[in-house]
Nucleic acid binder design. Sequence first.
DNA 1: AACTACTACAACCGCTGCTAG
DNA 2: ACTAGCAGCGGTTGTAGTAGT
Length: 283
Amino acid sequence: MGRSPCCEKAHTNKGAWTKEEDQRLINYIRANGEGCWRSLPKAAGLQRCGKSCRLRWINYLRPDLKRGNFTEEEDELIIKLHRLLGNKWSVIAGRLPGRTDNEIKNYWNTHIKRKLISHGIDPQTHRPLNAASVISATNSATIPTTTTKNISMDFKNNVDQKPNIIINNNVTSSSYDETKCNSGTTEETKPVEIIPQKTSQAMINLELSIGLPLHNDHISSAESTASYNFLAPVAPPLTAAVPITATAEVVAKTVCLCWQIGFQGGDQCCAKCKNTTGFYRFC
DNA sequence: AACTACTACAACCGCTGCTAG
DNA sequence: ACTAGCAGCGGTTGTAGTAGT
């Protein structure tokens, strides 16, 4: 199905926005609201594509944007959310007030990716880099024939009260092709779970409720770190066909607190919780 | 000072999902 | 059910700024 271009390209400016264009856009939106982006450029006296106006407003001109460097807390939150959601930048941005999807995407590609790699973590799979080959080989044998996964994210502490995120990811496959994961590019990959072989043939409901520690007053740094660790490639002892519901606090107490994803240096995991295949488990 | 390499990020492109007709 | 138009999303590119030589 062919589509006409979103705007008349011959009469639209491209490239960097001038201060005058910015001011026109700001003035128009202040007076009229965001409304219809397609008709906005003409109404605002801008020779720009509506799409371009929208992007400029959302990513740069919006008054509620938080400019400046990302904090360590934001870093960790982005990593956690990316682990859960993959490259769903707009969803991740929805959880970071004042940050845009574009900003987070750029920050991920220029900072966090490098940071994780330097600490031996694959930024796409969030697994230790040196375990990737082992896991790849193991997965073909351990992925169950039918798996139903539900992830429910309940951000109880979220200030903007956005709706919960529910992910339903049904995999019906005799061998999920792990080689499709491309760790070297920005290509979107599924967050991967490692399911113990004993759950084969079982319907598993992995319903997780996560309370992100936006207010850290009552949370120690160890607990804060643990709330990330529970999403590490850990294979908790699942009971077949038993739904799992866990809050972050409960999981935080269950998961090994040793693995610091390299943020604080040293080994990633204690000897107790890393087994010979490179998987992580509770200890 | 001049050049090169690298980094950060703004902006663009192409696609998808939703919706109205 | 189908088509077309729109907003929005994610990947990629272009370029200004900075660091290193």
